[in-house]
Simulated assay, not measured.
Amino acid sequence: MGLGPEPWLNEYADLGRVFLVGESAGANIAHYVAVQAGTIGLRGLKINGVLIVHPFFGGKEVDKMYKYLCPSSSGCDDDPKLNPGADPNLKNMACDRVLVCVAGKDWLRNRGEAYYETLAKSEWVGKVEFYESSDEDHCFHLFNLNSEKAVPLMKTMVDFITQE
């Protein structure tokens, strides 16, 4: 285990097997952290995979909420936090695998699929997988954990993390 200043991390955390997971805007954060980790390097930490669940990637129109939160951003697709394809460091993503999950009725579904396609065609050397929950909306599984489509989605995520 670790030799850092936090005893509970040293005892319980396996920094050689880390997964980043994010839902909606958190998916953007998980992606961006993985790219930054690969770009700047993080000693002693191995990111095995990233789960991108119902991502909130931007489009060609200005995202006014994001622009308010990040005034230095254009708020649209030239910002790598909203459009990973605009990031010259995408190829550096520090993980071996990515699972992209979208929901069929989610107004952001196409952006999630475009992210999957961008990553698959990029110079990044890992493996990207795609999972769609048809006839469901953004973050549906968080509102009914036992719904007909939430259970298979969560199983897919667990399987992704537990596979060797």
Rank of each mutant, 00 (worst) to 15 (best):
P80T: 10
P84D: 09
A86Q: 07
L51Q: 12
G58V: 03
D96F: 02
A94Y: 08
V102L: 03
E113Y: 11
R97T: 12
G75D: 01
M65N: 10
D87M: 06
F56H: 13
V62C: 00
Y68E: 13
V50W: 09
G58I: 04
K67F: 00
N92P: 00
L51S: 11
D87C: 13
M93L: 15
D63A: 06
E61I: 02
V62Q: 00
N92A: 11
P71V: 09
V98F: 05
W107H: 05
I52N: 05
F57C: 07
M65Q: 13
R43Y: 02
C70L: 07
D63N: 15
P88C: 04
M65C: 04
G49I: 07
P55I: 11
L51W: 05
P88Y: 03
M65Y: 10
M93Q: 12
P84I: 13
K91Q: 12
K81N: 03
P71S: 14
L90F: 10
K60L: 01
P71N: 11
D77K: 01
R111Y: 07
R111C: 00
S73E: 11
A103N: 02
D79M: 10
K67D: 00
E113I: 15
C95Y: 10
I52K: 04
P84E: 07
L51A: 14
K67S: 04
V53N: 15
N48C: 13
G104C: 06
V50Q: 09
K91E: 14
Y115G: 08
I47F: 04
L45N: 08
R109H: 15
S72Q: 14
V102G: 03
V50H: 08
Y68A: 12
S74N: 14
K81R: 15
D106S: 07
G58R: 02
Y115N: 05
G49W: 04
V50N: 08
L90D: 09
R111P: 01
G85E: 09
N48H: 05
R43W: 01
